[in-house]
C-alpha cells in the first residue's frame, strides 16, 4: 500500500516536472501570458464564481421553501456549467467573415430553448414535491 502510493506520487512529480520544462521551453515571450491565464483561471473561480454560488445557496435557503431546493440544485448544476461551455459560441468571438461554415448555428436560440426546458422541468419538479410534502 505505502510503496504504491509513494510510487504514484513520484510518477506524478516526474510528469509535473516534465510539464514545467515544456512550459519554460515556450520561451519568455509566451511564459508571462501562460502564467496570467493559469493564475487568472484560479482567481476567477475562487474569488468570483465560487463565492457567487455560495451567495446563491444562501439566498435559496433564506428565501425558498424546502421543496424548491432539490429542483434548484438540478437547475443550477445543469445550466451553470452549460452556460460557461456556451460562452465561446454565444459570443462568436472566433467568427470569420471569410468562413461562413464556422460558428454557423443559431446559438442564442438553441441556448434559450435548452434553458427553458430545464427551467420548466425545474418548476414542474418543485410543484410535484410540494404536493408530496403536503400529502
Amino acid at each position: 500500500m505505502r510503496p504504491a502510493r509513494l510510487g504514484l506520487g513520484l510518477l506524478g512529480l516526474a510528469a509535473t516536472a516534465y510539464g514545467f520544462l515544456l512550459v519554460v521551453g515556450l520561451g519568455p515571450g509566451q511564459l508571462g501570458s501562460v502564467v496570467v491565464w493559469v493564475v487568472g483561471g484560479v482567481l476567477v473561480h475562487d474569488a468570483v464564481l465560487a463565492p457567487l454560488v455560495v451567495v446563491l445557496g444562501v439566498l435559496a435557503v433564506l428565501s425558498t421553501r424546502r421543496w424548491w431546493r432539490t429542483p434548484l440544485v438540478w437547475a443550477l448544476v445543469v445550466l451553470g456549467p452549460l452556460t460557461l461551455v456556451a460562452v465561446p459560441v454565444l459570443g462568436r468571438f472566433g467568427a470569420k467573415a471569410d468562413n461562413p461554415t464556422l460558428l454557423d448555428r443559431p446559438y442564442w436560440a438553441g441556448y434559450v430553448v435548452v434553458a427553458t426546458v430545464v427551467l420548466v422541468l425545474t418548476v414542474a419538479a418543485a410543484l410535484r414535491r410540494r404536493r408530496f410534502a403536503v400529502g
Binding site: 506524478g12 510528469a15 516534465y18 510539464g19 465561446p88
Partner: peptide, 29 residues
Amino acid sequence: AQWYPWSFGFVGAHYALAWVAAGSLVVHI
C-alpha cells in the same frame, strides 16, 4: 470555437499544461 484571446501559441501551451495537469492529478490522488 477558433477564439484566441491570449498571446501564447495554443498547441504548445495546451500540450505543456496537459503534463502539469496530469502529473499534479496523479500526485493529488
